[in-house]
């Protein structure tokens, strides 16, 4: 129990003293002051964090082997080592060698610098391909913003840490910085591409990076500046009347907590519903709700599959932009992509 409350204390000491008088259902009188003292010491001088490779039990070879096994991928050992080698580590090594007086051997093509842009390209191509396939109705601007989110430093470093690469990376910074994790993730993708081919790499990207948008509201990732104007543009493309806003309900008007509910209608058919504290805001919300329903990303429509096997060699065409968006062209595009994948 106490181990959980104060996890960083000297565990054995705590375990020893908390158990010693268990049969009397009480602790020693010194136990509470002891804990306080230990806590105080820890705040004044926290114990240093050491890299895992400074421990006695550390076998880099074995760790690399189980790294590949953990992900269920076959890595080429040399390539994997190269992908985990950062330029900063080599520089530090060279400096140390100079200091000692050893001749510095040229270390070109040993670090992962050349792998990063190539890995990034593979990642970007497949991410766009997959997103365009699963969200064929979503405009290209939205697809790009989802891709930016997936390829951001935040997401990639998170993935890289949680597949257990942070301790294996050879770099100078410790604790490992996010930028390092980010670049290593890209290098790892390239290493996998070189060792097992594009097909396996695309499945890897799907399983570890694309799944990061699960449980996420993708409408939050793309902010539509002016939803009313956007909806009007789409209606003009479709050759239908402009949507007519109507107040569907209100509550607490003339109070500080006023609430309006606006519905948008085309030919007496409801296409969007939104509520807000003023009529203008409610109108905007209704427009963005209508857009969501059109793009197939409303809450009840969104069910992203993460088990598709797509051919990564296909060059994906960009989705329709907001300005050209209309139902007819979208259907044409969906037919095209279906025929390409067959």
């Amino acid at each position: 129990m106490l181990l959980i409350v104060l996890p960083n204390l000297q565990e054995e000491v705590v375990a020893l003293y908390s158990c010693s008088r268990k049969k009397y259902r009480e602790y020693h009188r010194f136990f509470s002051p002891l804990l306080k003292q230990l806590k105080r010491r820890q705040i004044i001088a926290p114990p240093p964090i050491n890299h895992r490779n400074t421990y006695l039990e550390w076998n880099y070879e074995a760790e690399l082997y189980s790294f590949g096994k953990r992900l269920g991928e076959e890595f080429d050992n040399e390539l994997l080592r190269q992908a985990l080698m950062q330029r900063s580590y080599l520089k530090k090594l060279e400096e140390e060698q100079k200091r000692v007086g050893i001749e510095v051997s040229s270390n070109e093509n040993v670090d992962n610098v050349c792998m990063i842009p190539k890995g990034e390209e593979i990642l970007q191509n497949f991410t766009l391909l997959y997103l365009r396939h699963i969200l064929p109705r979503f405009p290209e601007e939205g697809i790009q913003s989802i891709k930016d989110h997936l390829m951001s430093e935040e997401t990639l470093s998170h993935v890289c840490f949680h597949i257990g690469a942070s301790e294996l990376i050879l770099c100078e910074d410790f604790p490992v910085e996010k930028s390092t994790l980010n670049s290593t993730m890209k290098a790892l993708i390239f290493a996998l591409h070189e060792s097992s081919g594009l097909e396996r790499t695309s499945v890897f990207i799907r399983d570890f990076i694309l799944t990061q948008i699960a449980e996420l509201d993708i409408n939050d990732l793309w902010n539509i500046e002016n939803p009313i104007e956007t909806l009007n543009t789409i209606c003009r493309n479709e050759d239908v009347d402009l949507p007519e806003p109507r107040i569907v309900g209100d509550s607490g008007v003339n109070t500080i907590l006023a609430l309006y509910r606006v519905g948008l209608y085309i030919n007496k058919k409801l296409i969007g519903l939104g509520s807000g504290e003023s009529i203008k805001i409610a109108h905007e919300m209704a427009a963005s709700d209508a857009l969501r329903r059109l793009f197939g990303t409303a809450e009840h429509q969104l069910n992203i599959p993460f088990n598709l096997v797509l051919n990564p060699k296909i060059k994906s065409e960009p989705n329709l932009g907001v300005k050209d968006w209309c139902e007819k062209r979208v259907q044409e595009r969906i037919k095209q992509t279906l025929s390409l994948n067959e």
Binding site: M1, V159, H162, I163
Partner: peptide, 27 residues
């Protein structure tokens, strides 16, 4: 005893299992 244990919801790291299942124990 449970009063002192921190509480929370069951969460999986890295959306484990949506893509493929990764054994979370590393060593």
């Amino acid at each position: 005893k449970c009063l002192l244990i921190p509480s929370g919801f069951p969460r999986l790291p890295l959306k484990n299992g949506i893509g493929r299942v990764v054994c979370q124990l590393k060593r």
